[in-house]
Amino acid sequence: MGRIFRVFLSGALALLPIMVTVLVTAWLGSIVATYAGPGSFLGNLITSLGLNLSGSSHVAYFIGLGIIVGLIFLLGLAVESGLRNWISNSFDWFMTRIPLVSNVYDVSKRFVAIMDRGDDEDSLKSMSPVWCFFGGEGSAAVLALMPSHEPVAIGDKRYVPVLVPSAPVPFGGALIYVPQEWIKPAEGGVEGLMNVYVSMGVTPPKGIPAEGLHVKASAGTGKPAPK
């Protein structure tokens, strides 16, 4: 009986990732259908775009959806052709003049900038993943993002900012200034860090060999590596 249960459990665990994927996809699809499908407020706006071309509401909806997709594609062509700064500045000028909405727009823009693969060196995609050892090497380690490598002098010590994300929502978290010698570079890039936090640690980060820690620590502090 125990073997039958273990076999069944093994099959269920093997199937679990597929089930979770299907359920999450269905959940996201239901959200889209609720807020943008036919009959919703946004869906009615989309349908109104195609009513002049078709008498059927469902056909008009898909025509309107095609018009919107086409406009987004044209906007992408304009961005790729070198008008990125002009378009971005125009959106910024308009959105920052709307109370409350401007705060939401600023947060969303920063998050999109993290995931942006463009060539804009000033965007937040330049943030680098780091290991932060609270208390120094050998203590608790936290995988974080460093938004800037420019240290800040607090008293007689130099501190650097690190953004510690929250799982499973990595674009939230806490900004902490820690001593510069507590920081070691982490591998995997920003996307790797996002995968770790979204999976709540199920996806492990890449570690740092002990030799690498000593070498980097000695290079950053000017002290010889311990033997």
Rank of each mutant, 00 (worst) to 15 (best):
P129L: 01
V112Y: 10
S81Y: 07
W131M: 13
P170Q: 01
D116P: 04
M95R: 04
I98P: 03
V112N: 11
S126A: 08
L100C: 03
H149I: 13
F94H: 05
L83P: 05
C132Q: 09
S126R: 08
V164K: 11
L71T: 05
Y159N: 10
K125A: 15
G173Q: 00
N85W: 10
P170W: 06
L145Y: 07
I154P: 06
A140E: 11
A153K: 14
S108C: 09
I114F: 10
I87S: 04
F134H: 14
F133I: 11
G138P: 02
K109H: 06
S148M: 00
M146H: 07
A113R: 08
R97T: 03
P165T: 07
L75S: 00
V152Q: 12
D119T: 14
A140S: 08
F111A: 03
F94E: 10
A113D: 15
V130K: 05
L77W: 02
F171A: 10
P99F: 12
M146N: 06
R84Y: 09
P161F: 05
A140M: 05
K109D: 04
F171N: 14
L163F: 15
E150K: 13
A167K: 04
M95Y: 08
V160Q: 06
A144H: 07
P170H: 01
V107A: 13
G136E: 12
M95F: 10
I87Y: 01
L124Y: 12
P165L: 04
V107E: 09
L143E: 02
K157P: 09
V112Q: 08
S81L: 08
E137H: 00
S90H: 07
S81N: 01
E80Y: 12
L163P: 00
V160S: 02
C132P: 09
D156F: 06
A167D: 01
S108L: 14
V104G: 07
G118N: 05
G172I: 14
A144V: 15
S88T: 14
A153D: 10
N89V: 02
S123F: 03
L75E: 05
V112I: 13
R117F: 13
V130H: 03
W86K: 12
L83I: 00
L124W: 12
R158L: 14
S102D: 08
E121C: 04
